[in-house]
């Protein structure tokens, strides 16, 4: 299957999951309203590692804007996702394995192993969530609330993303 088509279909699937299912789930009870599951960063996290840095940013911006359209929050998701895409190369450099990345590396369990994938996903996702909830509050007066939302949502989102890795077992 063509690699572009594969990623496009993957994106569609992630969007369907995000908008049709996760967006409708209300995980708040009483005062506890800290869990918002966001899995769409998975698309960026699954892009091939040798992809141009510029393309990372452009794709993140477009995907972010589409998510914003569905969440009625123009710019918020896009800003967080673009920032995540920007720090992606830095994270990759930090957690680079001793033998380096091979030419056709893609960030999957199959290619890179579970522990590398876990660190890679959790670092990126945490940054994304923290930025997203900061911009959503837009003021560090709500710092405590931002931290709580970041941590709870991050944990749940991470679980969902890792589960999807186990279920679909993407190879490329």
């Amino acid at each position: 299957m063509n690699i572009i088509l594969r990623h496009f279909l993957r994106l569609l699937l992630i969007f369907l999951f995000q908008f049709l299912l996760l967006k409708q789930i209300d995980l708040s009870f009483q005062n506890f309203n800290y869990i918002h599951i966001l899995v769409y960063p998975l698309f960026i996290l699954l892009l091939p590692l040798n992809l141009s840095k510029y393309l990372y940013l452009v794709l993140a911006f477009i995907v972010g804007l589409i998510v914003d359209i569905f969440y009625h929050s123009p710019g918020v998701h896009a800003a967080a996702l673009v920032l995540m895409a920007f720090v992606q190369p830095i994270i990759l450099k930090v957690i680079e394995p001793r033998e380096g990345y091979s030419k056709d590396s893609s960030p999957t369990m199959h290619k890179m192993g579970l522990s590398w994938l876990f660190i890679y996903t959790s670092l990126s996702l945490f940054i994304h969530h923290f930025v997203y909830f900061s911009i959503e509050a837009f003021s560090f007066i709500y710092f405590f609330e931002i931290i709580l939302r970041t941590i709870f949502s991050f944990i749940v989102s991470l679980i969902v993303i890792m589960l999807s890795h186990f279920i679909f077992r993407p190879k490329i």
């Binding site: 940013l57 911006f61 710019g75 896009a78 800003a79 920032l83 837009f138």
Partner: peptide
């Protein structure tokens, strides 16, 4: 490019 996108996002936000 990153700055450019973030500035657009900021305006939208």
């Amino acid at each position: 490019l990153f700055l450019f996108f973030e500035i657009i996002c900021f305006f939208l936000i």
